[in-house]
């Protein structure tokens, strides 16, 4: 979800591949120096780097409100949260580097538009309530996906996820707390909260990726122990967890088909607009261009800084050598 539609490539079936698969099936963690099929390595690089890029780009919609947070405490909490996201990006880039790709290469892929990041960050944060909704729904959906990733077959990724999950659960609570405060507030605040839910609900459901029947790479990822649950399972879990929270807040989930299904012990709900999902994925969402432009500007404007530090280090090396 922070990584979506990750390609897996075709699976090989050599003796080594079979031994590798047996290891995975026995629940043995794969470590950086272990042999692994090329497809497994590439799939993980794609998934972990997408996840890292999502954390980096995710700073932008939330950072959009740091300077306008409505109280000192909210400002401090939001800063701490965005700082965590950048930190997650850092661990994840490090985890991906264990697979033989550098952070600079991954950054170049993000900046050129070649690498994907979660589509959710291509939606705009328009009011303060959006910061609540992003924490509550987007981080809530992220946790659904990331908790099982703590058991991912690749050791460095699974360990990074243990740390990430602890912080994400704080993020989700802070988002819900913003919504709670708004919903207990003035009529304007309640309307702001409802408006944010209306705009973020469907994009949040899309974070789990297309329906299982259309999810082409899921099967191989599950076999390799990279992915533990199907998209639809996680989406169902998210809806079942979130709807009662919305009710507690006194908000209405914007889905006319939403209904409790006693027989399955979960909610029935409507189908997201998948044509919108694919449009955003293609680069035609509300903020795709702005997000990439902001990241490119930060990188280009910072070239002198990076070059300056390298020049200083080279001077120091020359002095040390003399």
């Amino acid at each position: 979800m922070y990584a979506q539609l990750v390609e897996t490539g075709a699976a090989e079936t050599s003796e080594k591949d079979r031994e590798f698969q047996e290891k995975i099936d026995r629940g043995v963690r794969i470590e950086a120096n272990d042999w692994m099929p090329e497809g497994y390595r590439k799939t993980l690089i794609r998934q972990i780097s997408q996840h890292a890029h999502s954390e980096i780009v995710g700073q932008l919609p939330e950072g959009n409100w740091i300077t306008r947070a409505p109280s000192l405490q909210r400002k401090a909490i939001l800063l701490a949260k965005v700082q965590d996201e950048a930190g997650h990006g850092l661990y994840l880039y490090c985890a991906a580097e264990t697979l033989g790709i550098s952070r600079d290469e991954m950054t170049a892929q993000l900046l050129s538009g070649k690498a994907k990041y979660s589509s959710i960050f291509n939606y705009p944060t328009l009011t303060w309530a959006d910061i609540g909704a992003v924490g509550w729904l987007v981080d809530g959906a992220a946790i659904m996906n990331q908790v099982p990733l703590q058991r991912c077959s690749y050791g460095p990724y699974s360990r990074a996820m243990i740390r990430v999950c602890k912080e994400e659960s704080f993020h989700q609570r802070q988002g819900f707390d913003i919504m709670r405060q708004l919903c207990q507030g003035t009529d304007d605040q309640k309307a702001m909260a409802q408006d944010a839910l209306n705009r973020w609900w469907w994009p949040s459901l899309m974070m789990f990726g297309p329906s299982d029947k259309d999810s082409v790479h899921s099967e191989q990822s599950m076999k390799w122990g990279i992915k533990q649950n199907t998209n639809d399972e996680l989406r169902q879990k998210f809806v079942d967890q979130t709807v009662p929270q919305a009710e507690w807040l006194g908000l209405t989930v914007p889905d006319p088909d939403l209904a409790w299904n006693e027989a399955k012990g979960g909610y029935d709900f409507g189908e997201p607009d998948w044509s919108e999902f694919y449009e955003v994925l293609k680069g035609n969402g509300p903020c795709n261009r702005d997000r990439l432009a902001a990241r490119n500007k930060a990188w280009d404007d910072g070239a002198w800084y990076r070059d300056g530090l390298i020049a200083h280090a080279e001077k120091q090396q020359t002095i040390a050598a003399e």
């Binding site: 700073q59 932008l60 950072g63 300077t67 800063l79 700082q83 950048a86 902001a294 910072g302 990076r306």
Partner: peptide, 22 residues
């Protein structure tokens, strides 16, 4: 300081500026 969050020249500076802002 906080306005740099997400716009600094390297990821480590995004983190540092958020941290100092905090």
């Amino acid at each position: 300081t906080a306005a740099w969050c997400g716009h600094a020249p390297v990821l480590e500076e995004d983190i540092a500026f958020a941290n100092m802002g905090l």
